[in-house]
């Protein structure tokens, strides 16, 4: 297996970088644990739903910004991925409204 490492130069691992990756992993695990805490320690309701959605967005931020590296890309790339998601926000509002209207009609 001599030829395998003949001309490719392996750069040694940067400890700080690796540490940072595991730190993000720790944050994701911690937020999931907090979600569990709320799932069992708090009665269902609008406030709890809001907390869940907020914590989910926190997790999504860390996955997209750090794991997918989007936080370190050019601004133009960040915005061309993030801004179209505003359509989703719009869809949430109209379809939730529609859903409660259907409930009123049927029940």
């Amino acid at each position: 297996m001599e030829q395998e490492n003949s001309n490719v130069q392996v750069i040694p691992a940067d400890k700080d970088k690796i540490k940072k990756i595991w730190r993000v992993a720790g944050i994701l695990a911690l937020v999931t644990a907090i979600e569990f805490g709320f799932a069992f320690g708090m009665a269902a309701g609008d406030v709890r739903t809001f907390i869940f959605i907020f914590l989910t967005i926190v997790k999504a931020f860390y996955i997209v910004a750090e794991f997918m590296h989007l936080g370190h890309e050019r601004k133009s790339l960040i915005y061309s991925v993030i801004l179209p998601m505003l359509f989703v926000v719009f869809l949430i509002f109209i379809l939730m409204y529609q859903g409660s209207a259907i409930l009123d009609v049927l029940h």
């Binding site: 379809l95 529609q98 859903g99 409660s100 259907i102 409930l103």
Partner: peptide, 8 residues
């Protein structure tokens, strides 16, 4: 979400 909200 839509279908869930249209059920009681």
């Amino acid at each position: 979400g839509l279908i869930r909200y249209s059920h009681p």
